[in-house]
């Protein structure tokens, strides 16, 4: 009886959330330089990633000249992965970050076995890959098979929303989000959820395209962004609009200092960031105490 009451109370509070975000208050938000409603944004972003999923890796290589690989390496080295860790990689559908973490841990394990220091006490490593887009996840699962990680018990794929994570409070040692947070509707909600799922002592790391302030380099970068990238998108992926969205969304994303202060507002301590390539990308980090 009591359970029923709780049930119906919860229902009335939560069920409105089921209909695409909340219909009660639909604020205007940005989709690139366009102003759109919040529901519209998640639909449009969904379309972008469904369109680009199959060419995602190729386009990343072409647009960044292969640099995105180094940026992701840097992200993972900052994480300091360890055997037995519980990690959540959000918006990481194609597995790029998750595979790096797992391979780092596996190479550590191999070394440990060689040194005969292997202890069987440590827990199983678990890396959760959460992405809202099923197309990106199926690309990732396919790549896991190709890499011989298809049967790896450490990897768990989940279709989920960064703003409403399906993981327990205080359950993760690490949280990464690479080139994802720019595309969400509410950055604050994503940060609050990251904080919630991390264990005390857990590390938040975010790799994102950011803002270049170096005078001459900024002009070059703008030229490259607005002239070369959409053209490249059209040529290679046959999709100019998605790549136009990409460069616009980068300009709309809060600059380094502002984003760092948002991370601190979410409750994180020791918030800092590192600019790579003059701010083309930045890695923000924070600790939950």
């Amino acid at each position: 009886m009591a359970l029923r009451l709780v049930n119906s109370k919860l229902r009335s509070q939560i069920l409105p959330m089921l209909s695409s975000t909340s219909l009660l208050h639909s604020h205007a938000t940005s989709f690139g330089f366009k102003e759109v409603s919040e529901e519209e944004k998640s639909r449009l972003v969904g379309n972008v990633f469904s369109n680009v999923a199959s060419n995602y890796d190729l386009m990343n290589d072409l647009m960044s000249g292969g640099l995105h690989r180094l940026w992701k390496d840097r992200l993972v080295s900052k994480l300091n992965p360890f055997p037995g860790m519980k990690h959540l990689d959000v918006a990481g559908g194609t597995g790029d970050v998750a595979f790096r973490i797992l391979e780092t841990i596996n190479s550590m394990k191999r070394r440990a076995i060689q040194d005969s220091l292997n202890d069987s006490l440590h827990e199983e490593t678990r890396i959760f890959i959460c992405d809202i887009n099923p197309n990106m996840l199926s690309v990732g699962k396919k790549r896991a098979l190709e890499r011989g990680l298809g049967e790896d018990k450490s990897l768990t794929w989940v279709e989920g929303d960064a703003e409403a994570l399906s993981f327990e409070d205080n359950s993760m040692d690490g949280y990464t989000i690479a080139f994802g947070i720019r595309n969400v509707t509410h950055i604050e909600k994503v940060l609050a959820e990251a904080y919630r799922v991390l264990k005390p002592g857990g590390r938040f790391l975010c790799l994102e395209l950011s803002h270049v302030e170096v005078p001459l380099f900024k002009d070059l970068y703008d030229l490259y962004s607005f002239s070369v990238i959409p053209a490249l998108g059209e040529l290679v992926a046959g999709d100019r609009a998605s790549y136009q969205y990409l460069v616009e969304s980068i300009r709309r994303f809060p600059p380094q200092e502002k984003f760092a202060s948002m991370i601190a507002v979410a409750g994180f301590q020791k918030v800092e960031y590192e600019n790579l390539v003059g701010g083309v990308v930045a890695i923000h980090s924070g600790l939950k105490f």
């Binding site: 209909s19 099923p134 996840l137 699962k141 794929w157 279709e159 929303d161 409403a164 399906s166």
Partner: peptide, 11 residues
């Protein structure tokens, strides 16, 4: 779906 839990609120 295909062994992937779909836990997006809209699903």
């Amino acid at each position: 779906k295909d062994g992937i839990p779909c836990l997006v609120p809209k699903d």
